[in-house]
Amino acid sequence: MRARVEKIFGTGKRCYGLRRMRWRGLARARAQVHLTATAYNLKRSLHLQPA
């Protein structure tokens, strides 16, 4: 279980710039994380669908 979660966080840090928050404030930081997760899921869904 931990390996699956660590892969997602590692990808977020490495590819989507989640090492630092772009904006100040909890609401904006939360929005950044949600948008990043959405981008990750959209990209991942392309590989999960059969051709």
Rank of each mutant, 00 (worst) to 15 (best):
M1W: 06
M1Q: 04
M1H: 09
M1K: 05
R2S: 08
R2W: 05
R2I: 07
A3N: 10
A3P: 03
A3H: 13
A3D: 10
R4S: 03
R4P: 00
R4L: 06
R4D: 02
V5M: 04
V5S: 02
E6N: 02
E6D: 03
E6T: 01
K7I: 08
I8V: 15
I8P: 00
I8C: 07
F9V: 02
F9R: 00
G10F: 06
T11A: 11
T11D: 06
T11W: 09
T11E: 08
G12E: 04
G12F: 12
K13I: 07
R14K: 14
C15T: 06
C15R: 14
C15L: 15
C15K: 13
C15S: 10
C15W: 15
Y16K: 01
Y16H: 13
Y16E: 01
Y16P: 00
Y16S: 01
Y16R: 03
Y16L: 14
G17V: 04
G17Q: 03
G17H: 05
G17A: 05
L18F: 12
L18K: 00
L18V: 01
R19A: 06
R19D: 04
R19G: 08
R19W: 15
M21W: 15
R22H: 06
R22F: 14
R22V: 09
W23I: 00
W23K: 04
R24S: 10
G25W: 05
G25A: 04
L26F: 15
L26M: 11
L26H: 11
A27I: 11
R28F: 00
R28Q: 03
A29E: 09
A29Y: 04
A29G: 11
A29F: 02
A29S: 10
A29D: 02
A31Y: 09
A31I: 05
A31L: 15
A31T: 12
A31C: 05
Q32E: 06
Q32T: 01
Q32C: 00
V33Q: 01
V33N: 01
H34T: 05
H34S: 10
L35Q: 03
L35G: 03
L35E: 01
L35W: 11
T36G: 04
T36Y: 03
A37R: 03
A37H: 03
A39H: 12
A39C: 09
A39F: 13
A39D: 07
Y40S: 02
Y40G: 01
N41A: 13
N41D: 05
L42Y: 15
L42C: 12
L42S: 05
K43C: 11
K43F: 13
K43D: 07
R44S: 05
R44L: 14
S45C: 13
S45L: 14
S45A: 14
S45D: 07
L46M: 10
L46G: 08
H47F: 15
H47R: 11
H47T: 10
H47E: 09
L48G: 05
L48R: 12
L48D: 04
L48W: 13
Q49T: 09
Q49I: 14
Q49R: 13
Q49P: 01
Q49Y: 14
Q49M: 13
P50K: 12
P50M: 10
P50N: 08
A51W: 13
A51G: 08
